[in-house]
Each structure stands twice: as structure tokens, then as C-alpha cells.
Design a protein around this nucleic acid. Structure first.
Length: 462
DNA sequence: ATCGGCTCGCGCAA
DNA sequence: TGCGCGAAGCCGAT
């Protein structure tokens, strides 16, 4: 596909990819089909759409399709998303841009609205389903579909043309491109106001009412701890930078310390831009900010590289050869414990630390990173086979985590099975895959305090 | 408390 | 072709 920069002097041309060969035509508006980047600020796709609209003095209409059947999504995810979307709608309105929201498969909605558009702009997610949607829209509409990368700091294909092996192989590739791509995005206002365009749109001012109206599953309840939206994300970022970052290197692996940034749900729904976070953090020059940028830029964009280039990102098959081989050799090893899916899901194992991690996820929608590793390793250890373990870990992660169904989640689970890691001393069940044990948790932090706190929360909520 | 060994494959130097 | 080294590991020796 061809890069296209003629319309935007402020967006790096590598972020822009035409997904079909259609020519721009006369239309009533430029359409920004918003999907992955649900925000009004620091959004390259939105800014590109504004430039495109201004160029021909057309108004800009933004469309978001709410797909109530999105795999593994439930009321927890939808409420968080809707809270953010309502704020984004208000923010866009202040710039004279109308955001319409419809309950439909997003590709269907985009195809319908594209009939009246001169040009369609969209943002970018890397999972199977949104990629299918974009492909379908590209071939079904009569005007151009232009994809603008705003979900990563360095565009995926610029970093590498293939699946990277580990953090150490992608780190220098990202590092040398940061100078070019880690630059602020200046925002503009459309020449023509689109607020008066008369299009049917869902009222999303009350998320719970919308959830009921859409008939979305309430089997996993929303959480109160994390409220969706760009302003909430920014407030958390500010708090992280002023109160937590300095001690981040010493306490980030301690679930009791409460010193994580908690950006992942906001990044997952695109409510805050990774570029905005990176620029804010990098203003503080310290070893601590470098350590955080490693997470945000190297680990996060490695996870995206994995999902983008590995079609089996959510199954055992996606693992590296050595890991699959060694896990298969040991798949018949005797397991001291074997739990059913519901034993795991209901936190009914013999291990209080594992149960606490599971309960933290169920209650809060976010398990501490360090416990996520232990949690995944033990599912592997206590399942009938590594294939079943992998698929259960993905299912639980997608269902309960606010940041589930995200490249980070898939790469995180895969890491527990050897992805992006190296081999270690061979042992039963795990083979050469790194093993973890609860004695390690106790060595590194007060694991019993963690259990105590989670059990207390569990008792309060039940 | 600290440290080497475990083990595979990438990427660079030669 | 050889060599160093790697996301969070554990284990056993000192």
C-alpha cells in the first residue's frame, strides 16, 4: 500500500496507509470511523481526518460502532468503554465535530455511512476481528479508506517486517526510531462545524441504560475502581508521575505497594495516547522514567509486533518451536493437582496466593503484573495439557480483565509459556520453560499481606 | 546473602 | 563460525 502524506504536513507519512485504491470523490462529509483510538486528543487519525475535511471544506463526521457481540466482552468492558466514549463525544462537540454512535457491527456501520462520504479515515487495532472489519470495509466502499496509525509510538512495520524474537531484538529497532516518531501532535479545528448534520445516533449519556438497551451480558459486573475516560486517565497519569514514579523501580513488582501507573485499561480502549504518556514521562529524566518507558515502548510494542505478525497469537500454536517442543515432551508428566476450568475460575485451588490473584482479577478487573505471571505459570502446571492451560488463561484474562482482549494480554499469557523468554533448567511439566513458585513470591514481597487484603475485599463484596 | 549453572537461538564480530 | 547474552526463574554451593 502507498503512503499518503499530501494532506497532512504534521503526521509522519509512515503512519498513513491507503487500504484501497479508490479515488476521493464529492461527498457530504469526511468520515472518521473511530474504533481503537476512542479519544479526542493526540489522535493522528482524527487529525488526519480534520486536515482532509479542511482541504475540501467538508465537514467531518465521526462514527463509532458498538458491537454488543464482541467476543468475550461484557458489561464490565462496555461500561468502561461507554464512560470514555461519552466524554470523547463531548470533547469532539467542543471542537464542532459530531460523533455518532450506533449499535451495529462496526464494519456494517462504516459501509453504510461511507455511501455519503468523500473519504473514510480509520485508526488501527491489530487483532483478528478489527483487521477483518477494515479489510471488508476497504473492499466494500466506493471511496478511499485510509488507515492512520495512532495506537503505537513507532509504526509497527517501521520497527520490523517480521515477528521479533524477544525484547532484546526489538529494543534497538524501536530506540533508533523514537527521535522521529516521539514528537507532539499539534491539534487543529475543522473549518466546518458538523454538529448540525442530522444523523441517527444512540444516546450514550447513561452507560448503564445503554448496556441494558443493547442487551449486553451482565454476568461480569462493572467495577467502580476504574472509571473510563480520557480525563480519568490523565488524572491517574499525573498522580503516577508525581507520587509513584520515583519509587517505581523498587516497588513495581510488589502488589502491595500500589505504585503501578494503571494506564493499561485506558491504553487498551485508546482513551489515552501512548505518545502522550511517553512524552509526559520522558520529560522527567531519571532511571525510573527509563524503566517505565521500557514497559510502555519496548514491551507494549513488542506485544503488538507479536499479535500483528503471528496469526496464532491467542493459542499454543503461536509459541516458539523450542517451547512447543519441550511442553509437548512433558505434557504427560504427572500433575500434583489438576483443576477444572470452573475450579480455576471460581478460585478454588489449594493455593491461597493463586486464589487471591484470581479474586483480584474478578473483583477489580485488574490483576497486578507480577501476579499475572505466577497465575499463568500455575495454570500451566495444574492443567491436563499445556494447550488447555493456554486457552483457559486467555479466556479468563479476556473475560475479567479490563485490559483483556489486548495484545499485552496475549503476549503476557504467551510469556508464561515461553514466548519472548529463554529456556531454563529442565523440570517436570514445564520442560525448559521458566518455572515460578510461591516461595519466590514470599521472597520478593509480603505475599501473605496480599492474600489478606484480597480476601478482605472479597468478603466485603460478597 | 550472593553467585554460577541451567538452555536455546538471535545478532553481531570476525 | 564463534560468542555473548537475554523480563521478572529456581537450585545448590559457598
Amino acid at each position: 500500500m502507498i503512503g499518503d502524506s499530501e494532506m497532512s504536513d504534521r503526521i509522519e507519512r509512515e503512519r498513513i496507509i491507503r487500504l484501497n485504491a479508490n479515488k476521493r470523490r464529492k461527498g457530504i462529509f469526511v468520515l472518521y470511523w473511530m474504533q481503537a483510538s476512542q479519544r479526542a486528543s493526540c489522535n493522528h487519525a482524527l487529525e488526519y481526518a480534520i486536515d482532509s475535511a479542511n482541504e475540501k471544506s467538508e465537514p467531518l463526521l465521526v462514527f463509532f460502532g458498538i458491537y454488543s457481540k464482541y467476543p468475550a466482552a461484557n458489561a464490565r468492558h462496555f461500561r468502561f468503554m461507554l464512560e470514555g466514549l461519552a466524554e470523547t463525544q463531548r470533547e469532539l462537540a467542543e471542537r464542532g465535530i459530531r460523533l455518532i454512535v450506533r449499535a451495529c457491527s462496526p464494519d456494517e456501520g462504516a459501509i453504510e455511512l461511507a455511501k455519503q462520504a468523500s473519504l473514510v479515515v480509520t485508526d488501527r487495532a491489530y487483532m483478528r476481528l478489527p483487521r477483518q472489519w477494515r479489510a471488508r470495509v476497504a473492499s466494500s466502499i466506493d471511496c478511499p479508506l485510509v488507515q492512520v496509525e495512532t495506537n503505537v509510538v513507532v509504526p509497527v512495520e517501521e520497527v520490523s517486517h517480521r515477528e521479533e524474537y524477544a525484547a532484546r531484538t526489538i529494543r534497538p529497532k524501536i530506540g533508533k526510531l523514537l527521535e522521529r516518531y516521539m514528537v507532539p501532535l499539534h491539534e487543529r479545528i475543522p473549518k466546518r462545524n458538523s454538529m448540525s448534520l442530522d444523523f441517527e445516533s444512540l444516546d450514550i449519556s447513561n452507560p448503564d441504560r445503554t448496556i441494558d438497551a443493547l442487551g449486553i451480558e451482565r454476568n461480569v459486573p462493572p467495577v467502580d475502581i476504574y472509571r473510563g475516560g480520557t480525563s480519568e486517565a490523565r488524572e491517574r497519569l499525573r498522580h503516577f508521575l508525581t507520587e509513584k514514579l520515583a519509587r517505581y523501580p523498587f516497588c513495581r513488582n510488589d502488589p502491595n505497594a500500589g505504585c503501578t501507573s494503571d494506564m493499561s485499561p485506558y491504553l487498551h480502549f485508546g482513551q489515552i495516547s501512548p505518545l502522550e504518556v511517553a512524552l509526559a514521562v520522558s520529560k522527567i529524566r531519571s532511571p525510573a522514567s527509563d524503566e517505565y518507558l521500557e514497559e510502555l515502548l519496548v514491551r507494549r510494542e513488542l506485544a503488538i509486533n507479536y499479535v500483528y505478525y503471528n496469526e496464532n497469537y491467542d493459542s499454543f500454536e503461536g509459541l516458539p518451536g523450542w517451547a512447543k517442543k519441550t511442553l509437548r515432551i512433558h505434557s504427560k508428566d504427572t500433575r500434583e493437582y489438576i483443576y477444572s476450568d470452573s475450579d480455576f475460575e471460581m478460585a478454588r485451588t489449594h493455593d491461597p496466593y493463586w486464589n487471591a490473584a484470581e479474586k483480584e482479577m474478578i473483583l477489580t478487573g485488574k490483576m497486578h503484573n507480577y501476579m499475572r505471571m505466577y497465575w499463568g505459570k500455575k495454570i500451566l502446571e495444574w492443567s491436563r495439557s499445556p494447550e488447555e492451560a493456554f486457552s483457559l488463561a486467555i479466556r479468563l484474562n479476556d473475560k475479567y480483565e479490563l485490559d483483556g482482549r489486548d495484545p499485552n494480554g496475549y503476549a503476557g499469557v504467551a510469556w508464561c509459556f515461553g514466548k519472548h523468554d529463554r529456556p531454563w533448567r529442565e523440570r517436570p511439566i514445564f520442560g525448559l520453560v521458566r518455572w515460578m513458585d510461591s516461595s519466590g513470591l514470599k521472597r520478593k514481597f509480603d505475599a501473605d499481606l496480599y492474600v489478606y487484603d484480597i480476601e478482605k475485599l472479597w468478603a466485603e463484596k460478597r
